[in-house]
């Protein structure tokens, strides 16, 4: 039956090709093992150092995955994502120190603030293409950091110290043992992965990829490109903001240099690129490799100045870029 106006295709083709979810099996088992291992980790490794390391892996993997939703799926390379991290960190911290808000509420409050900011930034910047968009986001990141340094209300260059409280889930503080932080970070990461997984399987993901491939062609099939870029930006900013709030609560101190630097924006991008842009597991793989590696090189070569760990970093990046431009996840696919 040829297609055309009013042709009924409701029962068409379903089952002709296996849906993407059909290729499970080993993957599901592997995922289950991974999840059990992640849940059991703090009970096996009891040193705060190990826990701290994995908490950072989870946090940065989540940030990189959130960046990946905008940049990997939708093709809008942002180098200013620290803005949303800082927004989340500062919103929850200021609400807590100034008005005594509960930090969990602060985390939730940071999300809409970051989303609103992402729309304000995205609306004009999405008119720019490719490199120009990336450059604009760098500039905005720098502007926001400068504003934060000079804004006394949020602590200026001195930063903010969050009040030390007794261990409790409600207060979002756990000092005797770090494992609750660990699980909070894990939940954030799993949530972000689930949302990405869902995006990949719905119209949203198809539209994002079409926009990444060719925005003009995407428009020609009826996709409101600007709106979908803003949606990608909103989802991305929401998770990065939550990560920022978590970080503030975890470290209990924040200043423009720790939560708004360009280096953070670049690190987020780097992890996803090394692991595999536009893939579900790439950012996690990138974080699981690079975060421990940077810790290791810092411990081994830290005394020699900052250069050596960065040299190793740079060498690794170059290797990936030359031999595996699709990222490390691309290796597994071969």
């Amino acid at each position: 039956m040829p297609p055309g106006e009013g042709v009924e295709v409701a029962d068409a083709g379903a089952g002709v090709v296996a849906p993407p979810s059909a290729r499970t099996g080993w993957g599901t088992i592997f995922l289950a093992i991974l999840l059990v291992a992640a849940l059991a980790f703090p009970w096996v490794f009891r040193l705060p150092y190990h826990r701290d390391l994995v908490i950072r892996v989870f946090l940065y993997a989540m940030l990189a995955q959130a960046w990946n939703i905008l940049a990997g799926y939708c093709g809008q390379i942002s180098l200013g994502h620290a803005v949303f991290f800082g927004t989340g960190a500062y919103t929850s911290a200021v609400l807590q120190t100034t008005w005594g808000w509960n930090p969990w509420l602060g985390l939730l409050a940071g999300v809409p603030v970051a989303v609103a900011l992402s729309q304000v930034i995205g609306y004009p910047c999405f008119r720019l293409r490719g490199h120009y968009f990336a450059i604009a986001t760098i500039a905005i990141g720098e502007i926001v950091q400068t504003l934060a340094i000079n804004w006394e209300f949020i602590g200026g260059a001195r930063g903010l110290t969050l009040p030390f409280q007794k261990d409790s889930l409600l207060a979002f503080q756990f000092h005797t043992s770090k494992y609750p932080y660990y699980y909070v970070a894990l939940v954030l990461l799993v949530l972000c992965l689930l949302v990405s997984w869902w995006i990949e399987r719905t119209r949203l993901g198809y539209y994002f990829r079409a926009i990444r491939e060719d925005p003009e062609a995407a428009q020609s099939v009826g996709i409101p490109v600007a709106r979908y870029k803003l949606i990608a930006m909103a989802i991305s900013a929401a998770f990065v903001s939550a990560g920022g709030s978590f970080y503030a609560q975890y470290v209990l101190y924040l200043d423009p240099d720790s939560v708004l630097p360009l280096s953070l924006s670049i690190l987020i991008c780097l992890l996803a690129v090394v692991g595999g842009v536009g893939t579900l597991w790439g950012p996690l793989v990138g974080a699981a490799l690079l975060i421990p590696l940077s810790e290791f090189t810092r411990i081994q070569f830290g005394g020699t100045g900052r250069a050596v760990d960065l040299l190793i970093y740079g060498g690794l990046l170059t290797t990936v870029a030359v031999f595996q431009p699709a990222g490390l996840v691309g290796l597994l696919r071969r």
């Binding site: 039956m1 297609p3 042709v7 295709v9 409701a10 029962d11 068409a12 083709g13 379903a14 002709v16 090709v17 849906p19 399987r201 719905t202 119209r203 198809y206 539209y207 990829r209 079409a210 990444r212 491939e213 060719d214 062609a217 995407a218 099939v221 009826g222 996709i223």
Partner: peptide, 30 residues
């Protein structure tokens, strides 16, 4: 859309009227 499959190329267009990927898939195949 170069990095998408032939089927996905058409599915993206079909999704304007069929948001569900499986339904869009069937229509795209036609």
């Amino acid at each position: 859309f170069n990095a998408m499959t032939v089927l996905e190329n058409v599915m993206v267009a079909a999704m304007q009227h069929r948001a569900d990927p499986l339904a869009a898939r069937g229509e795209a195949l036609r």
